[in-house]
């Protein structure tokens, strides 16, 4: 761990101003916000992140969870994962988000980790974490060691020849299925970023993971109401029963009527370079009869463009079974 300065801010403008001094808001940022610290501090300990200054934003009034006038929900950037998961409105309206959060990490970590911090969670790729190896995400231009290496956990979709890292978050998969909006304030004012525009595919610049620029502070996330009568759930498949990242996961919001799928929102975790919204699966299913055959067909569509690596080919079939099963479970709830 490198020496760093820790400062505390008491207002949002002060926070924005302090981080705006950074050359980037992405990998290697010399100035970073810190909230729960459950991810950033780990990477600082192993010199993967070496900020010279941390801005403690825990004192900012951004921890609230409240209903919005349209029947949706506003979740503060600093709301702890535990508080979100156990919030009555979340459990009632967005079980998929509650389930996703509770399937991640451990109780202790969830008590510290925040909504915005989880949005920015780093990949678990072992080469990203080991500075003895090349990694284009950590050190642009140094190569991708995961290609041809230990890549069992890594991504099948959205990868590039520069990076095959997977996004490890469970929360983000649920937020993706729920069409969340990320609210950001920065030096040019406030803006609202739809979640499917928030994450950047690795392409040739895997070090850039989100649209955030220096000075940008996530203030809150809003969720639109789910269609009346829709059921949502999260299914996570992994090697052990708890405290383990997903090999494949699925977040589903499904509404059926008359034995047909009226609307469906599908996102997949553990298999994408970013939390993976599958419009292909949604298109394959919308208007179709609720059936195991159609669920499997949607899963085939979702994984159509999968690019397996040397160790993770099995995740293509696993993700298909995960999605088909999650759809069947959601349909059975109606």
């Amino acid at each position: 761990m490198q020496p760093f300065e820790l400062i505390t801010v008491s207002s949002i403008p002060d926070a924005v101003k302090a981080q705006a001094a950074s050359s980037t808001a992405q990998q290697g940022a010399p100035v970073r916000f810190i909230a729960g610290g459950t991810n950033l501090v780990d990477y600082m300990k192993i010199n993967v992140e070496t900020p010279r200054q941390l801005i403690d934003i825990n004192g900012l009034p951004l921890a609230g969870i409240e209903s919005t006038p349209d029947g949706g929900l506003k979740i503060g950037a600093l709301a702890r994962n535990s508080d979100v998961a156990h919030h009555e409105l979340v459990k009632e309206r967005y079980p998929v988000l509650s389930q996703a959060l509770l399937s991640g990490a451990s109780t202790q970590l969830r008590n510290m980790a925040t909504t915005a911090g989880n949005l920015l969670q780093k990949t678990r790729c072992v080469y990203y974490r080991d500075t003895a190896y090349g990694c284009n995400k950590r050190q642009p231009g140094s190569g991708c060691s995961a290609i041809g290496g230990h890549n069992r956990m890594l991504a099948l979709l959205g990868t590039s020849d520069k990076c095959i890292a997977s996004n490890p978050s469970d929360q983000n998969v649920a937020l993706m299925a729920l069409d969340a909006t990320i609210h950001v304030t920065g030096i040019k004012g406030d803006r609202a970023v739809p979640i499917d525009k928030f994450f950047l595919l690795p392409g040739q610049t895997p070090e850039r993971e989100t649209v955030l620029e220096p000075g940008d502070l996530i203030t809150h996330v809003t969720l639109p109401p789910v269609p009346s009568g829709a059921k949502s759930l999260y299914l996570k498949l992994r090697d052990r029963a708890s405290y383990e990242f997903a090999l494949a996961s699925a977040a589903i919001v499904l509404k059926q009527s008359g034995g047909r799928v009226e609307s469906v929102q599908v996102a997949l975790g553990g298999i994408g370079a970013v939390p993976w919204r599958s419009h292909e699966a949604e298109r394959a299913l919308t208007g179709k009869v609720v059936s195991a055959v159609n669920f499997r067909a949607a899963a085939e569509a979702a994984l159509h463009g999968a690019r397996p690596q040397s160790q993770n080919g099995f995740k293509v079939e696993l993700a298909k079974r995960c999605l088909a099963h999650a759809l069947a479970q959601a349909a059975a709830q109606a």
Partner: peptide
């Protein structure tokens, strides 16, 4: 990692052991 000979899952997040739920 056969390219370097390093035990690559050299931590308790990647070398997984049974937890209480298992």
């Amino acid at each position: 990692d056969q390219r370097t000979g390093q035990p690559i899952n050299n931590n308790l997040a990647d070398y997984i052991v049974a937890v209480a739920a298992d």
